[in-house]
C-alpha cells in the first residue's frame, strides 16, 4: 500500500446530505461525531463543503425536487470520491417506496459504493460502512 493510498484511507472527509426523511439517520450520523464514537480518531472529519469532501453520506428519500441538488453536490467533489447510502429510505425509498414523488434509491441518481441498511442504522453500522468504503480505495472499485 503506497503512501498516497494510506493517506487517503486515513483522512476521509465526509459530506453529509439529507435528501429528506424523518431525520433518524441524520441523528445517527451526527452521533458518530460525538465524543462517544469520536470519528476523528480515524482522521474522519465532517465537512460542509463538497469541494473538500471525499465521502458523500446520503440519507433520506431522493425525490424529483432534490435529485438535482444531490447530483450537483456529487459533481463538485474532486475524485477519488465515494458515496455511502445510509438507511432504508436512501437505499430503496423505505416507507415511501413507490410513492409518486420519490425516486426509489440514491443509486438511480449517482453511483453508490456502500449500502448501509437499517431504519435507522446504528452509529457502529455507519462507521463500519465508511471503513468498508475506504477499503474500496485500497483494492480499487
Amino acid at each position: 500500500m503506497g503512501l498516497l493510498t494510506t493517506s487517503r484511507m486515513k483522512s476521509p472527509w465526509l459530506l453529509h446530505y439529507d435528501c429528506g426523511g424523518c431525520n433518524g439517520c441524520d441523528i445517527e450520523v451526527v452521533a458518530c461525531l460525538t465524543p462517544l464514537y469520536d470519528l476523528e480518531r480515524f482522521g474522519i472529519v465532517n465537512m460542509g463543503n463538497p469541494k473538500h469532501a471525499d465521502i458523500l453520506l446520503v440519507t433520506g428519500t431522493v425525490n424529483y425536487r432534490n435529485k438535482r441538488v444531490l447530483r450537483n453536490l456529487y459533481d463538485q467533489m474532486p475524485e477519488p470520491r465515494l458515496v455511502v447510502a445510509i438507511g432504508a429510505c436512501a437505499l430503496t425509498g423505505g416507507v415511501f417506496h413507490n410513492a409518486p414523488n420519490t425516486i426509489c434509491g440514491v443509486d438511480k441518481i449517482i453511483p453508490v459504493d456502500v449500502y448501509i441498511p437499517g431504519c435507522p442504522p446504528k452509529p457502529e453500522a455507519i462507521i463500519d460502512g465508511v471503513i468498508i468504503a475506504l477499503e474500496k480505495l485500497n483494492h480499487g472499485k
Partner: peptide
C-alpha cells in the same frame, strides 16, 4: 473535549491526500 482525537501526524495524511486529489 473528552475525545481521543486523531494521531499527531494526521495533518500530513490530510496534506498528502489533498495533493493526490483531482485538480478542480
Amino acid at each position: 473535549q473528552g475525545r481521543i482525537g486523531p494521531p499527531i501526524i494526521q495533518p500530513f495524511y490530510d496534506f498528502i491526500k489533498l495533493l493526490g486529489k483531482k485538480r478542480m
